[in-house]
Computed example of a mutant assay.
Amino acid sequence: MAITILPPVVDDLGHRPPYHAESDDSMSVDSDEDIDMTGTGSRPHKRPRLGGKIGTGVVTPGEVVTDDPQWMRGHGTYINPLSTSIIATVAGTVHKTNKLLSVHPLRARYTPEIGDLVVGRIVEVQSRRWKVDVAAPLLAQLPLSAINLPGGILRRRTSADELQIRSFFSEGDLVVAEVQSVHQDGSASLHTRSLKYGKLRNGVFLAVAGTGGSGASSSNVKGGVGSGSSGAGANPGGAGGVVRSRRQVWTADTANGGGEVDIILGVNGYIWISKHTDGAAAASSTTENVSITRMEEMVSSSIYSSQNDEIAPQTRREIARLAQCIQVLVQGGVRVEEGTVMGAYEASLQVDLEVGDDGEDEEDRQEGREYLEGSKARRILELEVQQR
């Protein structure tokens, strides 16, 4: 059987546009499209890749960040073993550190770091430690040797302390602590060896996204402000969360006769707002020439109490106002820090004055004064932006 050899098909070059080296439409090595090798004019769709130029937009899981071999992969990425492409594993923004590429997720759980101030909830009591929920992928642990016990901070922990470990912290208790170390698996070890750490009382608990996320929820706990729970709607794409590099514990002077209120912003997104109590000063005032060790002994005898103090209605109202101001910030995508919280609080007071000038009755104005949603929330955000 004879074999017929067909001549090659040559395109008509006269119908092709001339090639210009300086044209913006010319093909380059960084082109995001495939070269047409078939001559049919159709080009197959290909996933866009950034090549040597790293963008600053949002990438999705499975998207190729770059295929340049000079870059190294960081958190939130992996390298295809069959190529040099760096592929995103989470949805987030691309960050460059010298030649290291990492993707910071838009919404993720808290990653512990040494020195972080966190607010946590006791979820399990073991023989020599407590398991604490700090909004991290793994539960943190609070060893018995990392807390202050009655009898002095240098007292040796005995078997009697292990038997009555539940009298110090039990399931459901809220604590404020500091991250002492981070283990290889990502879990954290906490400690409360300071007067500013320990069990939380006389306040309200809030939970916001810890890593640039959105959505907020709050629940009244410990009987200090009320009972039950309430929630706030999520804000997709927001930039909320607690700022790590700002002061996280401060005392605010509230209006309307509320007195002083303590605010604790945990890096993990857990927030505690409570009535101000100066336990160290009260303990030291009972005696003269009290040493630091003696002060620790006197204070530690009462810091493990779960009984709440009496809170005036004016203080309860201002605690609720601060909690709603934080929810307004999170819903608006504003990062939570001391400046933004106090700015939103001052703005809420100004909004109350504006509402009071509308000619309504005094009884009608007082009834819904603590509700900061809808038009009030939008007005508070506008005033907060103007203050900054």
Rank of each mutant, 00 (worst) to 15 (best):
4 T>Q: 05
21 A>F: 12
23 S>T: 00
25 D>E: 13
39 G>I: 06
41 G>R: 03
52 G>H: 12
57 G>C: 03
60 T>R: 14
63 E>F: 00
66 T>L: 04
66 T>W: 02
68 D>A: 13
71 W>Y: 15
79 I>T: 14
84 T>W: 02
87 I>R: 11
88 A>H: 07
93 T>D: 04
99 K>N: 13
109 R>A: 04
113 E>F: 03
117 L>N: 05
118 V>M: 07
118 V>I: 14
118 V>E: 02
129 R>H: 11
130 W>Y: 11
137 P>H: 04
138 L>M: 13
139 L>M: 09
141 Q>Y: 00
147 I>R: 04
148 N>V: 09
148 N>Y: 05
153 I>S: 15
181 S>P: 03
183 H>V: 06
183 H>T: 11
184 Q>N: 08
194 S>G: 14
200 L>M: 05
203 G>F: 02
216 A>V: 08
216 A>D: 02
218 S>L: 14
223 G>L: 11
230 S>F: 07
231 G>R: 09
232 A>M: 10
236 P>N: 12
243 V>I: 03
250 W>Y: 15
254 T>D: 07
258 G>V: 00
259 G>R: 08
260 E>D: 10
277 T>I: 14
288 E>D: 14
295 M>W: 00
295 M>P: 00
301 S>Q: 05
302 S>C: 03
306 S>Q: 07
312 A>V: 01
320 A>M: 09
320 A>G: 13
325 C>I: 03
329 L>C: 05
333 G>M: 05
346 E>Q: 13
355 V>K: 09
367 E>K: 04
371 Y>Q: 14
372 L>H: 07
385 V>W: 06
